[in-house]
Amino acid sequence: MRSGVALKRSVLRKSGKLIPLYPTFFLVVFFLVPFTVMLAVSFFHRVEGAFFEPAFEFDNYLRFFDPFYLGILQFSILLSMAAAVLATAIAFPFTYMITRMSRKAQVVALVLLLAVLSLSEVIIGFSWSTLLSRTSGISNLFVSLGLLEKPTSYYPSLSAVLIGLVYLSVPYAVLVLYPPLSRLDPELPEAARMMGASPMRTFFTIVIPLLRRPIMSTLILVFVFTLGAYTLPQTLGKPSSWTLSVHITDQAIFQANLPFAAAMAIFLLVVTLAMIAVTSMLDKTKSEGDTK
């Protein structure tokens, strides 16, 4: 196998000797540089009326450590964790069922999931607010079923935000879980069935334990994904359910305090990178386990 790879490289190496300068230029200038500038600005001094002036101070970071912002951070993390757990709990059995269907049925399911996943948060927020509204929402259905006296509005509320986030992340979680689940050898659950395990028992004693690492990675990735949600807490929630992402935008655009927004963004970045590092460590231990 190793010699095969070496052979492949030697054949390919003869072609393409140029370092792709043009994409390197773009990624460095329009991705790395902005992050560096943002890091610098997070230490700058804010000037009322203008944007900022160069300085090196920790005021922006220190400001973050007051009960108000720490409360927001705690709320954002708890909200994202709840969304991650719910979305994964729904997505895992769902993905497992999809991967056991025919290839054709899988394609249909994937097209619909991708369509929902790619939809703008704005559109999802608008659609859910319509569905939860008094005039055209689901409460009208409950009324006509006799479950409710008169239609009511279910938003803005914390549960509406949570529903929206779960809605947003289920397709994402499905797509993260799809590769490992579709690569699961179907003979493993079949073997459990032959040995007397019911479908439920097979799912809990074989399928879930076999995929515990992908499940952990999914939890973390969905957590990061929902941490970045920005419009849903605004369209479906009260100001009390605004997340860190909303406050970053608020500071940047409406308070024109770019240094403070930058400091919060850097903080969010550090949390995210730590999570990604944990995920890739999980992946690494997994692949080591495989090669043994």
Binding site: D185, E190, A191, M194, I206, G289
Partner: peptide, 18 residues
């Protein structure tokens, strides 16, 4: 299947790695 009380060896053997 799980109520048939048969034994089966699969092509991939299907031994549980966990």
């Amino acid at each position: 299947s799980h109520e048939r009380n048969f034994g089966m060896v699969f092509q991939s053997l299907a031994l549980f790695p966990h």
